[in-house]
């Protein structure tokens, strides 16, 4: 029984860390412009496709990841420039609806350009099982997912806390007007935030496709929504919250499946969303703050 639980924890943490990578983008963008960027899951899908084509062209995992992150960073900046920036200062619901529009646009462009069928993802990582102890195993894909997540988290912590741009990001997300008075270029800072968040989603897309080896234009919807749940669970706008929210969600999901209710897996994720919104809308890490008027 103990070994079974440890095994499920390993499985849960590996899928959870993918949710965490996507959730970071949601939470960073929300932190800075108070927008739930519903197109974020589709950026994840684009990342998976870039990884797919890179792998088909013979690139290894490392370069596929780098390429997917770069393309997604540019895509994220473009989405912000073209769709959200012209609406800066408009009511929040207007930008939210625009985000849903961008999401549909990316999905349908994907179907138009690439066809609706799922494509098998090339095997760029040889899957080997390692026995940890007893019956508990971990495979090479899970190890890679964990390694990618940990490396990106450390990099993100460094960027946010130690670099000038990271300080600017935190300043803008705390008080945009005061940040302007420091001489911070708010538009550049917002673009930078979209670039980082989208690059993380791109990386998540590639490792997701390595784990579940297939890609299709609608693959971003469910992981995107779950990452949104993870971000809300941890406290939207709070970076460590997204990490913890993603891991908790992954573990709960795997727990529900392994207890024999695998049909309820997605339901459990959304039940968490409903429960957290009823009982602690600010999330696990959030403080209750009054809305600024």
């Amino acid at each position: 029984m103990f070994e079974y639980i440890v095994q499920q924890l390993i499985n849960g943490i590996s899928i959870g860390s993918i949710y965490a990578l996507i959730a970071l983008g949601y939470t960073m963008v929300y932190g800075i412009i108070k927008l739930i960027n519903f197109a974020h899951g589709d950026v994840f899908m684009v990342g998976a496709f870039v990884g797919y084509f890179a792998a088909k062209a013979g690139l290894g995992l490392f370069w596929s990841l780098i390429l997917a992150m770069a393309v997604c960073a540019i895509l994220g900046v473009l989405i912000e420039r073209l769709a959200y920036r012209p609406l800066r200062g408009a009511a929040r619901i207007v930008i939210l609806i625009t985000a849903i529009g961008v999401s549909f646009l990316l999905e349908n462009l994907g179907i138009y350009a690439l066809g609706p069928q799922a494509k098998g993802f090339p095997e760029i990582v040889t899957k080997t099982q390692y026995t940890l102890f007893g019956d508990v195993t971990i495979n090479s894909v899970q190890i890679i997912v964990l390694a990618v997540t940990v490396i990106l988290m450390v990099l993100l912590q460094y960027v946010v806390h130690k670099t000038k741009m990271g300080k600017a990001m935190r300043a803008v997300s705390y008080d945009m007007e005061a940040a302007r008075l420091m001489g911070i270029n708010v538009d550049t800072t917002i673009s930078f935030t979209f670039a980082i968040g989208s690059a993380l989603a791109g990386a998540a897309g590639v490792v997701f496709a390595v784990m579940y080896p297939s890609v299709d234009p609608l693959m971003g919807i469910i992981p995107g929504l779950k990452a949104f749940v993870a971000a809300v669970l941890g406290g939207i706008g709070i970076i460590p919250g997204a990490l913890v929210g993603g891991l908790v969600l992954g573990i709960v999901e795997t727990g529900v499946s392994s207890a024999g209710f695998s049909l309820w897996r997605d339901g459990a994720a959304f039940a968490i969303l409903i429960l957290i919104l009823i009982f602690k809308p600010s999330g696990l890490f959030g403080k209750n703050v009054r809305e600024k008027v």
Partner: peptide, 26 residues
Amino acid sequence: LCHCPEGRRVFANMSVEENLELGAYL
């Protein structure tokens, strides 16, 4: 030309030193 705004508007989520460093941002 630097503006020290009404109500202080310090970045409460950052340390004193980080606030001062942000003053020298440019």
